[in-house]
Simulated scan of single mutants.
Amino acid sequence: MERHFKRKFSSTTSSSDNVGSSSVRDVGISRDVVGSSKESELQDVLANLPADPRLRPQMLDHDPNIRDEVRRAYLQKSPCQPKDHTFPQTDLLGYDRHFNVKWFDEFDWLEYNISKDVAFCLYCYLFKSNFKIGQGCSDVFTEKQHIQTVLIKQSDQARIDYCICLTAALDCVRFLLKQGLLFRGNDESDTSNNKGNYVELLQFLADHDEKVKAVVLEHALGNLKLIAPTIQKDLVNSCATETIKKIIKDMNGAFFSLLVD
């Protein structure tokens, strides 16, 4: 008989099925609303990403679900590199220094804030967990800083000691060059009785000047003795360069001739 007649379901069953279907539809709608809200928030954030490094919120302040999208957006954008800006000069130990625009071409992650005259690292902002807005990238150029900048980090006494040591070494070099004397000795070891004109003359200055004695030879730092053969050659070459510059300046563009016998 069931083949010829359709089974009738009770109204209770139909009602429960309708309720179940309605619940499923409500859950689906709520999920769509939440997803749409998240997508709207993401689009709003991506559309208003600050280009200025100092105006950006901390990466941790973004919703965890959209941080990767924010990082991807910043990587796709160009870093904040105002190449047409006239960078201000800062007096540094009597030298005028300023940000070099060529660094932008050398470091594609480098950014710059005009208002504070500070450089930033884009990758540090995106991926460094303890990065703080405003700290800049103070350790980015450690190896390529100018020597004057490196000296600032040393104590005043260390700079004074080095100047005394260098001045004494140059005095020895100038004396030997003027007299046409040899620099090196056959044995310049600590136990040698004759360490060569340069080292012996430096020792002579130390014996007659307590300030020099306190910072040269055995009292100097291991890498600041200024007695190595390569250092002696560097000092001689420096004197030669300065002498040539002085001669050229005194000639003031006049003609000259060389007599070769």
Rank of each mutant, 00 (worst) to 15 (best):
K6C: 06
G134P: 02
N48S: 13
F104L: 02
K6Q: 11
Q43I: 07
I29L: 10
I164S: 00
N237F: 12
E106N: 06
L170C: 08
E106D: 13
K246L: 13
I29Q: 13
D250M: 14
N48L: 11
C165M: 14
G180S: 00
R31D: 15
E200H: 06
L126I: 03
S192E: 09
I66Y: 02
S40P: 04
Y112S: 06
A220E: 06
F141S: 05
L226A: 05
D61S: 12
V199I: 15
K249Y: 09
V27G: 07
Q203W: 02
L92R: 11
Q232G: 03
C80Y: 00
Q157W: 10
L49N: 13
N197G: 01
H146F: 14
A220M: 04
K245P: 03
H98G: 05
I231S: 15
L221S: 10
I160L: 12
S10K: 11
S129Y: 12
T149Y: 03
L201Y: 08
G196Y: 04
D105N: 12
K213Y: 02
S10H: 13
D96V: 00
R3P: 00
L258K: 10
G20A: 15
S23E: 13
F256V: 10
V199F: 01
D190K: 04
G136M: 06
K116N: 06
E210S: 08
R31P: 05
I247K: 07
L60M: 08
S30K: 02
T230R: 15
K195I: 04
A206K: 04
N130D: 15
D84Q: 08
K213D: 00
K178Q: 07
D44M: 12
V27K: 11
S40E: 14
G94T: 00
L181S: 08
Y112G: 07
L176I: 10
I227A: 01
C124M: 02
F5C: 12
L166T: 08
Q148A: 10
I133A: 01
R174M: 09
S115Q: 08
C172D: 02
F107E: 05
A214D: 10
L217F: 01
C165G: 15
S15C: 09
G180Y: 01
Q148M: 10
K211N: 13
K128I: 11
L258E: 01
V101L: 06
M1Y: 12
R159N: 12
L226P: 03
V173R: 04
L151R: 04
E2H: 04
I114P: 06
V19L: 14
I66L: 11
V27H: 09
A169E: 05
Y74P: 00
T241I: 09
L177V: 03
Q76L: 11
V33M: 07
S155I: 05
L226N: 02
K233P: 06
A169G: 10
Q148L: 09
S15F: 07
